[in-house]
Design a protein around this nucleic acid. Structure first.
Lengths: 195, 195
DNA sequence: CTTTGATCTGAACGCGCGTTCAGATAAACG
DNA sequence: CGTTTATCTGAACGCGCGTTCAGATCAAAG
């Protein structure tokens, strides 16, 4: 039997989060026992509590980390002044970012109802900030006369729903490359809102 | 204390399904105990088993009923030969049908991973049949030259994702009427695929 | 080599889970 | 009115849950 105790591994923490994310995405938060996460990592259930105070915090941290990474990645890109260019950038960024993190996206959207009230408020605020980004682009485009959109807020949510829908069918290594998918969706997005 | 035993109520069955649907939508299948469903109905947990063989069947029947109702309602409407008219009809029908059944829609989309393999296959086939309906409309429109769509299958999924997204924000009695929402989305759908 | 401290095990805790069933109840029937 | 039958209660079943913790283990520090 391999050495399993006392080793200052230092990598158990990340492995716990990875296993939890994968299992939560696959089976749902409520359906995954802590013992299953532990088994995936190769430790006993008690050891998980060196890395999270409880199961709820584990879920919350995963969702928070995902959304903060999303916002940070978005802010790392320069925003073109031209609204059409900005919308194209948003579209391609959204598809690329989300297609590469299917588990995190799934968990962040499906497990909202398993968050305690305080945690939910934090996550909701982060998501809202991202939606507002797109809405601002649409507003600008309407002012510039390049977009014809009666309800920018609703259009923003409609476009995000469409773009996130990529994750329901896209698989890396399939018939279409990510670049091709970006082109197809950008074509639809542009025509849906262009003046 | 009110009479609680022996009464041939005859309405307990539907009430069980209604309570289960609402609770599954609110908290998720795995997070809802049979005892909570029973409490909502006003009976003890054991009584539920007069109406379902087990919890899994309860979920499966709810999802199956929802999708069969969806397909039946769709087939009850005449399909215009003109592809543009057919797409408009599909768009408005989809929004109307789904906006009126938020709990059933939520459960049918979110609890797929809690279905046993055989049940999942049945549900998946039903959903696929609905998607194929929209794809057929797009195919026809491309042949007629009224749509410019490179990938009808993908466009169909993109549009359905966008339309179902209405349920994430729409509330009856809000600022916009259902008819107005239909107009806004139909405008985007039309422009997204029109030649 | 000894000590320290982080890490993990293994057992235990109280609790709630889905499900079963014998017995109680009351509506329906002849 | 007596009997039948569908319905529901209340208790019980074995099991797995999230979480805790004393003690074992081993890398690193002195």
């Amino acid at each position: 039997m391999a050495r399993t105790q006392g080793s200052h591994a230092g990598i158990t923490g990340p492995r716990v989060r990875e296993a939890a994310l994968r299992l939560f995405a696959r089976h749902g938060y409520a359906a995954v026992p802590m013992r299953q996460i532990a088994a995936e990592v190769g430790v006993q259930a008690g050891a998980l509590y060196n890395y999270t105070p409880d199961k709820q915090s584990l879920l919350f941290e995963l969702m928070k980390e995902h959304l903060e990474t999303l916002l940070a990645a978005r802010r790392a890109e320069p925003v073109p002044a031209d609204a059409l260019a900005a919308l194209e950038q948003f579209t391609r960024f959204h598809i690329r970012f989300h297609a590469r993190r299917p588990d995190a996206v799934f968990v962040a959207y499906m497990e909202l109802r398993n968050l305690e009230a305080d945690n939910f408020a934090v996550i909701e605020r982060l998501r809202r900030a991202y939606e507002d980004d797109l809405e601002a682009i649409l507003d600008t485009g309407v002012q510039q006369g390049v977009f014809a959109v009666a309800e920018p807020k609703i259009a923003a949510m409609a476009l995000i729903a469409m773009l996130t829908g990529v994750n329901t069918w896209f698989r890396e290594g399939g018939r279409l490359s990510l670049a091709q998918v970006e082109d197809i969706y950008w074509d639809m997005v542009r025509r849906a809102v262009a003046a």
